[in-house]
Nucleic acid binder design. Structure first.
Lengths: 154, 154
DNA sequence: GGGGGGTGGTTCAAATTAAAACAACTACCC
DNA sequence: GGGTAGTTGTTTTAATTTGAACCACCCCCC
C-alpha cells in the first residue's frame, strides 16, 4: 500500500466546506419543508421525481436509484405517501413483479403548494449567496463528481 | 407574498448536482468507513474533532454544534464509542452539569488506523477529480454558505 | 440569599434508515 | 422445455436520529 497522500490546506478546506455546507443546507431545507408543508425532504424529492415522470409513474427500483436511497427505504416512504393519498401504486404491464408509483391529483397539488417555499429556502441558503461564476463551477464540478459515482461507484 | 422566483437552468443544475453529489459522496464514504474501520461517518467525525481538541477534550454541547447534530444524537454516539473504549467522558471543573468527551489512546489508535483509507476514499470520490480552480471555488463558495448558515440559520 | 430565566446533558418515544433474508418471477442458455 | 442465475419489491430486524420533556444546576439581579 502506497503512503497516504494527506489533504493539503486547500483540499481540506474544500472537503470540510462540502461537509459542513451539506449538513447545514439539508438541515435547513428539511426544517422548512416539515414546518411549512408537512413533508420530509426525501418525500418531497419523491413527489418531484414522480411529477417529472408524468402519468405513467416510475418503477420502484428506478425511483430508488434516482433518489439514491435503498429499496427498502423507498418501500417505506411510498407506503407513507400512499396512506396520505399523495401517491398510488400500480402494476407494470408485462412484469408481474413490477410496481410503479405515480402521483395522484392530491399529490400534485401538495407538490405545487410546497414548491414555492422550498425554492425560496434553497435560494436563501445556497443559490442567492453565490455569483454566476461560482454557480457554474459548482454545477460543473459536482456534476462531474456525481457522474463518476453514478457510473463507477455502484 | 411575492411571486416565486423559480430556478433557472443553471441554478437548477447547481442545486441538483449539489444534492446528488452529497448523497453519493456520503454514501460512499460511509460504506468505506464501515467496511474498513468499523466506524460510521458520524463516529469518525467525532474522533477527528476530539483528536483536534487534544487532551482536554470537548464539552458535549460544543461538540454537538461543531458536528451539526442534535445533543441527543451525540449522547447516543458518545455512549456507543465509550462502550468500545474509544472515548471517555470526564467532568468540567467548575460546572457540575458539564460533561467533556475526550479520546482514549485506543480511540486515537483507531483514528490513525482509519484515516488513510478514509482520506483515500475522499480523494477518490471528490478531491482528485477536480482541478485546482474548481477546488478553490468550491471551498470558497461552500465556505461562505456554511458561514452564513452558521451565523444566521441557528 | 432567594427567586427567575436560561443552560447542559440525558432520557424517552417515535420516525426513519439500511442491510439481509425472502418469495415470486423473468431471462437466458443449452 | 428445464434449470439456473439474476431481478423485483417487501418484510424483518437492528441501528440511528431527532425533538420534546425533564432534572439539575449556573448566573444575576433585586
Amino acid at each position: 500500500m502506497a503512503k497516504t497522500r494527506w489533504l493539503d490546506e486547500q483540499e481540506m478546506a474544500a472537503w470540510t466546506a462540502f461537509l459542513e455546507a451539506s449538513h447545514r443546507v439539508f438541515r435547513s431545507v428539511e426544517q422548512q419543508l416539515k414546518e411549512e408543508a408537512g413533508l420530509s425532504h426525501p418525500q418531497y424529492e419523491i413527489l418531484v421525481k414522480l411529477a417529472a415522470a408524468g402519468g405513467a409513474g416510475l418503477r420502484m427500483t428506478e425511483l430508488a436509484e434516482s433518489l439514491i436511497t435503498s429499496k427498502s427505504g423507498l418501500t417505506y416512504q411510498i407506503g407513507r405517501l400512499e396512506e396520505r393519498g399523495l401517491v398510488v401504486r400500480g402494476e407494470v404491464p408485462g412484469d408481474i413483479r413490477g410496481v410503479t408509483a405515480r402521483l395522484t391529483d392530491v399529490g400534485a397539488a401538495a407538490l405545487r403548494a410546497a414548491a414555492p417555499g422550498h425554492v425560496a429556502r434553497v435560494r436563501e441558503v445556497l443559490i442567492d449567496g453565490l455569483d454566476r461564476h461560482q454557480l457554474t463551477v459548482l454545477a460543473e464540478a459536482l456534476g462531474e463528481v456525481s457522474d463518476r459515482l453514478r457510473e463507477h461507484g455502484a
